[in-house]
Amino acid sequence: MSAPASDITAILLAGWRPVPDPLALAAGVEAKPLAPVAGDAMINYPARALLAHPAIGRVIVLTQAPELFADDPATAWLAEHPRVRFEKSGGGIASSLTALLDRADLPFPLLMTTADHVLLDAAMLDQMVREASGADIAVAMVERATLLARYPRSRRTWLKFRDGWWSGANIFWFGSGKARPVIALWQEVEQDRKKGWKIVSAFGPLTLLGAVLRIATLRGGIARVGRRFGLTARLVAMEKAEACIDADKPDDVVLIEAILANAAE
Rank of each mutant, 00 (worst) to 15 (best):
A135W: 07
A135G: 09
A135D: 08
D136E: 04
I137E: 05
I137L: 13
A138K: 05
A138Q: 04
A138T: 02
V139P: 03
M141D: 05
V142A: 02
V142D: 03
V142K: 05
E143W: 00
T146A: 01
T146R: 13
L148F: 10
A149V: 00
Y151T: 01
P152N: 05
P152I: 02
S154W: 13
R155D: 04
R155G: 00
R155H: 08
T157E: 10
F161E: 00
W165Y: 13
W166E: 04
W166D: 02
W166N: 07
S167M: 00
G168P: 06
G168W: 12
G168V: 09
N170R: 13
I171L: 15
F172W: 10
W173A: 03
W173E: 03
F174K: 00
G175K: 06
S176Q: 02
K178A: 15
A179G: 08
A179D: 04
P181H: 06
P181Q: 08
P181N: 05
P181G: 04
V182K: 08
L185N: 00
L185G: 02
W186Q: 03
V189Q: 13
D192S: 12
D192R: 13
D192T: 12
D192P: 01
D192C: 12
D192N: 14
R193Q: 14
R193I: 11
K194R: 15
K194D: 15
K194I: 10
K194L: 15
K194Q: 14
K194Y: 10
G196A: 15
G196F: 15
W197V: 09
W197Q: 10
K198G: 04
K198D: 09
K198Y: 07
I199F: 10
I199Y: 11
V200G: 03
A202Y: 06
F203S: 07
G204C: 04
G204Y: 07
P205C: 06
T207A: 14
L208C: 01
L208T: 10
L208P: 00
L209T: 12
G210L: 08
G210T: 01
A211R: 15
V212D: 02
